[in-house]
Write a protein that binds this DNA or RNA. Structure first.
Length: 702
DNA sequence: GTGCGAACTTAGAAAATTTGCA
DNA sequence: TGCAAATTTTCTAAGTTCGCAC
């Protein structure tokens, strides 16, 4: 929901008026409004840094004065629009008999209305600026405060406990389950789990044997004695009516009226207001995941041996609460008790419970924009920057170690070479049969690499092919040094495909060695370092200050993409990709035609205006020039968009932006390139990286 | 030294919401 | 205005790292 809409009373009214007037303006209005808002945001951003709490009022005045360029631009735009509109109205031919007086009155009335609209719009904008300022002032600038002593995460923590999903509501009688063609009324517990399966019938999971078998095994555990005796074959189960009911519900939700949607929104907002925030050291902080995970079927990725098992419903009796001793302890739901209430300020979680499928602990933690997460994030990038100062030394050291006679040292050097060069993950050992078979660097097996003395003109090429985190395939052909190649041959000698490539190495040993080279250095720091340094280098290479905004953004995305490729951040190509690409190309063709037309009209106008000083003809000429320019810009934007989208087909940019790229590089780039930060960071990212936005100068270097 | 649990970060999919266009 | 596409947010699985117990 828009911030301004959330405010009760006046704001809604003002915005409502504005909207009504905009409707009257018809086509292109939304774009205009957006452009105006962008200008407004620019103005607001420009002033934000100047504001101080105590001088708020005075500063608002100052800020208006501080941005004359922007203000001028905005004013020019508005007056331009007014001129255009009046012009348009003037173009309308009135019957000769129409009284001039009436026309004059109408023009006056229109002018007055426009003035009113303008004033209202200005008022709404001023309010928006004010709200943004207030939000900024309310922001906890934790990065300006002193840090707590080692290990202490907070001194006061209060919250309402987690939000529990609603209890199961049994199916209505007209939704029936059939076994072997016969209608069976299931007990509530059996029915609930049946519905978990039915809801997934349009998902590939329910076609997989492992998923089906696991589900059936766990489902039978929920059945009554009689049900268990009767239902012995999943293939004889007919969930059709349950599935249909689910589909109908989804459809109904999609087709809800505006009022119904609003009502749902309000309910969710209330839940968020109550459970979604906590008080941490006198500041209200947003909680990241305040809801207990609802029961369902386990969706392990790839060939996960446990997919389909029942994730059982979590009760308050399973939940440990963590908060201050002296706070208002959260109350468990009526008739229930917490498993435990503890007061451990050396950890950041608010609540935790043990999950039944993998036996791991789940936590309720703070949002990424919180102090606790932000401080850690900042620290992460500082450690990565620290690596920059000693990476040359470390690299020469592992080059030397590649020649070591000691197998352990030699393997460590090759592994580190891969981690550094290819940004591979550390690769912990995993328990067989508990998870999908995925690997990282240290857990690579002989079967995951193929050595080529020669490949496509390159010497000493290593071909990698393995499943990494989330079962994402890593496939790469990399030329390596002769020494690395020779070592790999040695490591693979007399080994079967299923054996470990680095049999003398694990992540503990590797990280122990790394931490001896630099405090805080672990394998994953190399990923952060290489990602950030790549972004910085690519931005320097690709961006040109005189480029258009669209071209600058393409350069940024390309730099971002280089990192995503390095880190192997993939996504499934969108299902509608081909179609949407075709649509975009059709649009480009259409725009090209328009441009050709605009150009020929301009040519004609030039011809007509040549040698005359006729104001009307000159005005037409100017208009045609503008039209051509507009068309050219739009075409360029579309073409850039097409390139960007094509290059991005299977690559996920978000992960690196969120987790690997030092935000200060991006902030500094925006400042240097005069690119509004909003173009590359959405609201969530701006919130998460508030610390970086606040502290970064244009000359920042990673 | 090693096995394991706890705590935390990183990840893509799916759902929800917003935007753009005819 | 309604639909489709794009973007953002939510969800939770799947990693990494660290410290403790034996």
């Amino acid at each position: 929901m828009e911030e301004s809409e959330r405010t009760p009373g006046g704001v809604v009214m003002v915005l409502g008026l504005e909207d009504a007037d905009f409707k009257a303006e018809r086509k292109g209005t939304r774009k205009k409004r957006q452009r105006e808002e962008e200008l407004l945001d620019e103005l607001s951003d420009f002033t934000e840094g100047l504001l101080l709490k105590k001088r708020k009022k005075m500063k608002i005045e100052e800020s208006r004065e501080a941005g004359p360029g922007v203000e001028k631009k905005r004013k020019m735009k508005i007056s331009e629009e007014t001129v255009l509109k009046v012009k348009k109205e003037e173009d309308v031919e009135y019957p000769v008999s129409v009284k001039r007086k009436k026309k004059k009155e109408e023009i006056e009335a229109t002018k007055a209305m426009k003035l009113r609209v303008k004033e209202e719009r200005m008022a709404a904008k001023a309010l928006k600026i004010k709200m943004k300022e207030e939000e900024e002032q309310q922001r906890w600038r934790w990065w300006e405060e002193e840090r707590y002593e080692c290990g202490i995460k907070w001194k006061f923590l209060e919250h309402k406990g987690p939000y529990f999903p609603p209890e199961y509501q049994p199916l209505p009688d007209n939704v029936r389950f059939f076994y072997n063609g016969e209608h069976i009324k299931l007990s509530p517990a059996t029915e609930e789990v049946a519905l978990f399966f039915a809801q997934m019938l349009d998902h590939e999971y329910t076609t997989k044997d492992v998923f089906r078998n696991n589900f059936f095994k766990d489902w039978r555990k929920e059945m009554t004695h009689d049900e268990r005796r009767l239902i012995v074959d999943l293939d004889k189960c007919d969930f059709g009516e349950l599935f249909q009911m689910h589909k109908d519900k989804v459809e109904a939700r999609r087709n809800m009226s505006q009022e119904e949607k609003q009502a749902v929104k309000e309910v969710n907002q209330k839940i968020l207001d109550k459970y979604g925030y906590c008080i941490l050291d006198h500041h209200r902080e947003r909680i990241g995941n305040f809801k207990i995970e609802p029961p369902g079927l386990f969706r392990g990725r790839g060939d996960h041996p446990k997919q389909g098992l029942l994730k059982r419903r979590i009760q308050p009796e399973d939940v440990i609460i963590n908060c201050s001793k002296d706070c208002c302890i959260p109350k468990p739901p009526a008739g229930h008790q917490w498993k435990e209430v503890r007061h451990d300020n050396t950890v950041t979680w608010l609540a935790s419970w043990m999950e039944n499928v993998q036996g791991s602990i789940k936590y309720i933690m703070l949002n990424a924009n919180s102090k606790l997460k932000g401080e850690k994030d900042w620290e992460k990038y500082e450690v990565a920057r620290g690596l920059k100062t000693c990476v040359d030394r470390i690299r020469s050291e592992y080059q030397v170690d590649l020649k070591s006679k000691k197998m352990e040292t030699c393997q460590r050097a090759v592994a580190l070479y891969f981690i550094d060069k290819l940004a591979l993950r550390a690769g912990n050992e995993k328990e067989e049969g508990e998870t999908a078979d995925t690997v990282g660097c240290c857990s690579l097996r002989v079967e995951h690499i193929t050595l080529h003395e020669q490949l496509n003109g390159d010497k000493c090429v290593v071909e990698f092919d393995f499943l990494g985190k989330d079962c994402i395939r890593y496939y790469n052909k990399v030329p390596v040094t002769k020494r690395v190649f020779k070592n790999l041959k040695l490591f693979m000698e007399n080994k079967q495909g299923g054996e470990d490539l680095f049999d003398r190495l694990n992540t503990t040993l590797l990280n122990k060695y790394l931490s001896s080279l630099m405090p805080g250095l672990t394998a994953k720091v190399f990923r952060t370092y290489n990602a950030s340094i790549t972004l910085q280098q690519q931005l320097r290479e690709l961006s040109i200050k005189s480029d258009s905004l669209a071209e600058k953004l393409l350069a940024y995305n390309r730099a971002n993409r280089a990192v995503a490729i390095l880190c192997n951040h993939q996504r499934a190509p969108p299902k509608t990709f081909e179609q949407s690409m075709a649509n975009l190309h059709a649009k480009i063709d259409h725009r090209k035609e328009q441009l050709a037309l605009a150009r020929s009209e301009l040519k004609q106008a030039k011809k007509e205006a040549k040698g005359t000083t006729d104001d009307k003809l000159q005005a037409v000429l100017e208009r045609k020039k503008r039209a051509v320019q507009r068309c050219e810009e739009q075409l360029l934007r579309l073409e850039v968009q097409a390139t960007d989208r094509e290059e991005n087909k299977q690559i996920a940019l978000g992960t690196s932006k969120l987790n690997y790229l030092d935000p200060r590089i991006s902030v500094a780039w925006c400042k240097n390139m005069d690119v509004p930060l909003e173009k590359i960071y959405n609201k969530t990212l701006r919130d998460k990286f508030a610390w970086a936005i606040h502290m970064t100068n244009p000359d920042f270097e990673f």
